[in-house]
Structure formats: structure tokens, C-alpha cells
């Protein structure tokens, strides 16, 4: 039975695009794969060769689009953000509003040692340049 290639690799993606939650999409695909295996077994026990059995099983199960549409029609299967898009968008905006100003602070804290090194180098360079300029100034004067 397992000579047949696994099916539904695209379906999970289609389900997620349609708003079905990740957990539901995984469970649906797993059960569909089992159903598909049962159909293959049935077809092969009716003396169909593997190619014909695969065609029979795929036709009986229906197209990925058909299944994705049926799943999207079940509100209970949709993820929270697909069920309440307005709240999800507001939440996302709020997260961005908080994280954007915090991002430079986080970066600075994360790179504190590098920033300290750069600051020390720039200060030292400014000090040396300033001293040289002052020395030149006094030599000219």
C-alpha cells in the first residue's frame, strides 16, 4: 500500500491560506491520508493496478480545492485571526506600535559591548585629533 506517493502536500498549504488553524489542518490532512490509504486498499483488492487505484482514490476523495472550501465553511476550524480579522489586525498594529520604538533599545542592550567599544574608539580618536589640532594651533601661533 505504501508504494503510492503521499498525497495532500498542497492541501495543508491551501487550508492554512483559507484560514484553517494549523492544528486542524494537520489533523485533517492526517485523516485524509488514512482515508486515501483505505481507498487504495479497496481499489487494489478489486484488482486495479496501482495507477488506476491512485486515480480512483483521488477522484473519490475530491479535489484539494473542494476540501479546502468545505473546511473554510466550518467556522469552528478557522484560526482565531481568521475568525476575528478586525481584532487580529488591531492586535498586530498594537504589537508593531510597541515593538518598533523598543527595537533600537533592544538592539542597543543586545550589542552593549560593541557599542561601548565603538564609543571608546570614537572618543579616543576625537581626543587624539583634538590634541593634535591644538598642538598645531599652538605651533602656528
Amino acid at each position: 500500500m505504501h508504494e503510492a506517493p503521499p498525497q495532500f502536500s498542497q492541501l495543508e498549504k491551501l487550508l492554512r491560506t483559507g484560514g484553517v488553524s494549523a492544528q486542524c489542518a494537520k489533523m485533517l490532512v492526517a485523516e485524509l491520508q488514512d482515508h486515501y490509504d483505505d481507498l487504495l486498499e479497496e481499489a487494489q483488492s478489486n484488482r486495479l493496478d496501482l495507477d488506476a487505484a491512485i486515480e480512483f482514490a483521488r477522484r473519490a476523495i475530491g479535489s484539494d480545492e473542494q476540501i479546502a472550501r468545505a473546511a473554510a465553511a466550518q467556522v469552528e476550524l478557522l484560526s482565531w485571526s481568521a475568525r476575528y480579522p478586525m481584532f487580529a489586525n488591531c492586535g498586530r498594529s498594537l504589537v508593531y506600535a510597541i515593538t518598533l520604538p523598543a527595537a533600537p533599545i533592544y538592539f542597543c542592550l543586545n550589542q552593549a559591548s560593541s557599542i561601548a567599544r565603538w564609543s571608546a574608539s570614537i572618543s579616543l580618536a576625537s581626543l587624539i585629533t583634538g590634541t593634535l589640532l591644538l598642538a598645531l594651533q599652538s605651533l602656528i601661533g
Binding site: C24, I61, G62, A70, A73, Q74, E76, L77
Partner: peptide, 16 residues
């Protein structure tokens, strides 16, 4: 029914 269509129905009913 397209046999695959039964699973979204089953999962929906299980969820509610």
C-alpha cells in the same frame, strides 16, 4: 459527497 468533504464536517462538529 466528495469523500474528503466529510472530514471538515466531522472536525467542525467535534469542535462545537
Amino acid at each position: 459527497l466528495g469523500e474528503g468533504v466529510i472530514y471538515p464536517v466531522l472536525h467542525g462538529l467535534e469542535r462545537n
